[in-house]
């Protein structure tokens, strides 16, 4: 018998008394078990933890206060600089790649596709490890701006690939009629792209691009692998250095919290923008 006819058969004989528990009762019991399990786990963890050591190692205010104000004036500032410069680079290159991907010149499309595949496929860490070796390929070449330039380059190269895909989706989301309307008014293709299509595409991709900013903010920690001086240090390395200086992990936790200070509100903004756009359409 098929499940449908089985159901129909069951429905047609409601008078028959049900055996065992009703579904609603089962659900209530299952929920109760889940609460109990959660409480048990929390109690066990609390009993096993060494609260004195936790306060000493992770919430050590003495150690934390030694990082101030450098945490903000140097580490956070540098993190923001690395992120913003990388983001700007990624934005420009990403938009360019997205336009190349739609080009009528086939090699541009290939180049763009190859770039996107490679840089999305590689761990960002590998790219940062390679950036230091660039002068080997181009003797005498130095990335301008030292670590700042290298960081912007690394973060830009990585984010460009992701942003290109986002821009491509945004450009494709603009209805075809927009280009037709612009062309029918006598606008050349480039002019129509610049005045009509790209502004609409950018509006569409603002929420995902805000998410990209969050990702890049976190990825800026990879600058650690470029070898930075005390003045160039960013949040992750700052926390790590402080924690080895004082032999105490609190600074790492403080760095983590500082990241969250930025990433959580930004993520919230991105979701709000997304919701507003969804409602506006």
């Amino acid at each position: 018998m098929s499940p449908v006819s089985e159901q129909q058969a069951a429905a047609s004989t409601p008078a028959e008394p049900r055996k065992g528990l009703s579904p609603r009762k089962k659900q209530r019991i299952s929920r109760g078990v889940q609460y109990v399990l959660l409480v048990v786990i929390l109690v066990v963890l609390a009993a096993l933890a060494d609260w004195g050591a936790i306060r000493q190692s992770f919430f050590n205010l003495d150690v934390a206060s030694k990082g101030l104000p450098t945490l903000f004036t140097v580490a956070l500032k540098n993190t923001v600089i690395y992120t913003v410069t990388g983001y700007i680079g990624g934005f420009v290159v990403g938009l360019l790649l997205a336009l190349m991907r739609q080009s009528s010149v086939a090699p541009y499309r290939w180049l763009s596709t190859i770039y996107i595949e490679i840089f999305r496929g590689l761990p960002a860490l590998v790219i940062f490890l390679m950036i230091g070796s660039l002068p080997l390929a181009f003797p005498g070449f130095h990335v301008p701006g030292e670590v700042y330039g290298q960081a912007a380059l690394g973060l830009g190269l990585v984010s460009a690939a992701y942003m290109a895909e986002t821009f491509r989706a945004g450009l494709q989301a603009v209805p075809k009629g927009q280009m037709e309307a612009a062309r029918s008014l006598g606008m050349p293709h480039m002019r129509a792209m610049v005045s009509i299509i790209i502004p609409q595409a950018i509006r569409i991709v603002i929420p995902p691009l805000t998410n990209e900013l969050v990702l890049l903010f976190k990825d800026s920690s990879l600058v650690l692998f470029l070898g930075v001086t005390a003045a160039q240090v960013e949040l992750a390395k700052f926390g790590n250095d402080q924690s080895s200086t004082f032999a105490n992990p609190t600074p790492i936790l403080v760095s983590g919290l500082t990241y969250l200070l930025i990433t959580i509100p930004l993520g919230y903004v991105a979701r709000r923008l997304e919701a507003r756009q969804g409602a506006g359409r």
Binding site: P175, G177, A181, A182, S184
Partner: peptide, 14 residues
Amino acid sequence: RRRLGMVFQQFNLF
């Protein structure tokens, strides 16, 4: 095309 005005079914305003 400047000499030809076009009005679309879906308006296509910007």
